[in-house]
Computed example of a mutant assay.
Amino acid sequence: MKTSWRSASLVASAAAVLVLTTACGQDKADTSTGSQNVGAAPAANGYGSAGAAASPSTGAGAAGAGAQTQSAGQLAVADTDKLGEVVTDSAGMTLYRFDKDTAEPPKSNCDGDCATAWPPVPASGATAPIGVDKTLLGEVTRTDGSKQLTYEGWPLYRFAKDTKAGETKGQGVGGTWYATAPDGKKASGGGEAAAGGSAEAADLPGLSTRNDPELGEVVVDKNGMTVYRFEKDVPWPMKSNCVGECLEKWPVVAPVDAADTKGIDNKNDGRRGYVVNNRPDGLKQQSIDCWPLYTFAGDKKPGDTNGQGVGGTWYAISPEGKPLGKPK
Rank of each mutant, 00 (worst) to 15 (best):
A23N: 15
G166C: 04
G61Q: 10
Q26L: 07
K2R: 13
P292N: 02
T127R: 08
S13G: 13
A193F: 07
S4D: 12
E139Y: 06
R6Q: 15
G270R: 14
I264C: 02
K82T: 08
E248Q: 14
D81S: 12
G138M: 09
G298M: 13
A316K: 03
L247Y: 01
K239A: 04
N306L: 11
R229P: 02
G216E: 13
G325H: 13
D212Y: 12
T305D: 08
T116A: 15
V253F: 00
Q308C: 01
G190I: 02
G196Q: 14
W250V: 07
T22Q: 15
F98H: 15
W236S: 12
D144H: 08
L156A: 00
R142I: 06
T58E: 14
D79T: 12
N266F: 00
V87C: 02
G166Y: 06
N223R: 09
L293Y: 02
V253R: 00
G92W: 06
N241Y: 15
G112P: 04
K232I: 01
K326D: 07
A23G: 15
K322D: 15
D260E: 05
G224L: 02
G184I: 07
P251S: 09
N266M: 05
L83G: 03
G189A: 06
G59Q: 07
A199G: 11
P120S: 11
S90N: 07
G84F: 00
D257K: 13
M225A: 02
D183P: 01
R271T: 14
E214Q: 15
G166W: 10
G309T: 01
D30V: 05
G48A: 10
A254G: 03
S71C: 03
P319L: 02
V77R: 04
K161D: 12
Q74M: 11
M93D: 01
W291D: 00
A60Q: 11
I317R: 04
D89G: 08
V173I: 14
T141V: 15
K267L: 04
R272E: 11
G325V: 07
S198C: 11
A8Q: 09
Q171V: 05
A72S: 05
D30P: 00
